[in-house]
Each structure stands twice: as C-alpha cells, then as structure tokens.
Design a binder for these strands. Structure first.
Length: 214
DNA sequence: CACCAGGCAAGTA
DNA sequence: TACTTGCATGGT
C-alpha cells in the first residue's frame, strides 16, 4: 500500500476508536505556549498541576508572567519537573516576544509561518517539537508535530527506521497528507493518545491497540 | 524498587 | 561530529 494511504488509514483507525481529542487543552494561545514548554519530557498530568498554580495566582498572561522573577516562577511550576530549567526557558520565550514584537503577543503569533518558526527556534529551550506545537496549536499553521510517540509508533509499524530524524519524519507526514491544520491537529493528538496507552517504551500492550495490522 | 513521561541544551572526546 | 549527561516531579 502507498505511504499516503497507510498514513490516512492509521488516522482513520485512531479516529474511529477515540474520536476528536479537542487539542490543545488550553484556554488561550498564551496558555498553549506555556504548556508546550512545561510538557517537555513530562506527563501532561504534572503540567496541569503547574498550569493550575499559575492560573490561581493570575499568571497565565504574557504581561503578568513577564513581570515575575524567574526564581518565583520556578516555584509555581514545580510540579511540572525540571522547574529551574523550564522557568528560564519560559523567560527566554517571553524575552523574545518583548524584543521581537514589543510584547505584542498577537503580532508575534500572527507572523508568517517561516518567520515565526525561525524566531521560536532561536529561543534557548525551544526545540523543533515545542516550536511546531506552538505553530500548530497556538498560531494555527499547518505544521505536523512530531514527538516520541510518533517516532515509536511509526517504527513499530515499519514505516520508518530507528534513526529517522525529526524533519525526515515530519516530511513523511507533510509530503503525503494535505496541508490541513485541522487534520494535523487531530492526527498528532491521536498519536499521543494511542501511544500513551498502547505504545509505551516497555510493555507494548498491542492487544487492544486500534493500529493492529495496519 | 525501577522505569517512564507530549525535550532540549550543554558537556565530553 | 557523535555520543552522553543533567534537568526533577509524580504516577505505575
């Protein structure tokens, strides 16, 4: 079967089983950006605790968070793990928005895709997945987000090999699927849902995985 | 107890 | 350039 058909088939099987995932789980684009940094190598459950802390003290806005010392921010996001690193990374992102667009978040996110991606990747602490998550889920650009589950699932179904890099894997999707923000949104969310349940590092319990035999 | 989670940058040779 | 290590909480 051709690659395009297989990728579409995988999507269909996941969607039949689980339906729309309603990603990104956030109220505002700013909250998406914060969550994207906090969830780096971290379970979403722990990120939720950190987000809740921030919401309770009214820090889920660019202006409020930008006015906060890094050390104090670190305390609020503690449950998300790597809290010192992540507080610095969030600070770097906020600084970039200040410098590039004078604190105009809508203007920052409203840039053309390539310019925004370049600026995000220039921030220390924002790599390809975090940048693409923000591009897709905060700025609604048709960019496919690749993560560890994407890599693992496609490996186990022999669509790629182990040493396949981020962009190579991203291009596999983007070269064979229409450039559709809604599709990419749902596809990535479903891969995370299925991966976290049926494609873990160790005990792959492929028994009830919707991708049996794709 | 060991292992994992919606990564990334810095250090080492 | 190609590997390795640090970062850290909370669930299974």
């Amino acid at each position: 079967m051709r690659t395009a058909e297989r990728l579409q088939h995988i999507y269909d099987r996941m969607f039949e089983r689980f339906g729309p995932q309603h990603w990104w789980p956030a109220e505002t684009p700013f909250e998406v950006m914060v969550g994207a940094v906090l969830t780096q190598n971290t379970s979403w459950r722990n990120v939720e605790r950190a987000i809740t802390n921030l919401r309770e003290v009214g820090l889920l806005s660019f202006e409020a968070m930008a006015a906060l010392p890094t050390g104090l921010l670190a305390e609020y996001i503690r449950p998300a793990g790597y809290y010192n690193v992540k507080a610095r990374r969030l600070g770097n992102l906020l600084s970039s928005i200040k410098e590039q667009h004078n604190g105009d978040l809508a203007g920052y996110l409203g840039q053309p895709l390539s310019a925004l991606r370049e600026q995000l990747l220039a921030v220390k602490g924002i790599g390809p997945e975090t940048a693409d998550s923000i591009l897709l889920y905060a700025a609604s650009h048709p960019v496919f987000v690749v993560d560890a589950y994407t890599h693992r699932i496609l490996c186990r179904h022999d669509l790629i090999d182990e040493e396949c890099g981020y962009h190579e894997l991203q291009d596999l999707f983007m070269d064979h699927l229409p450039a559709d923000t809604r599709l990419y949104n749902e596809y990535h969310a479903l891969l995370v849902r299925v991966g976290s349940r049926f494609c873990k590092k160790k005990g792959p319990d492929c028994e009830q995985c919707p991708l049996q035999g794709v």
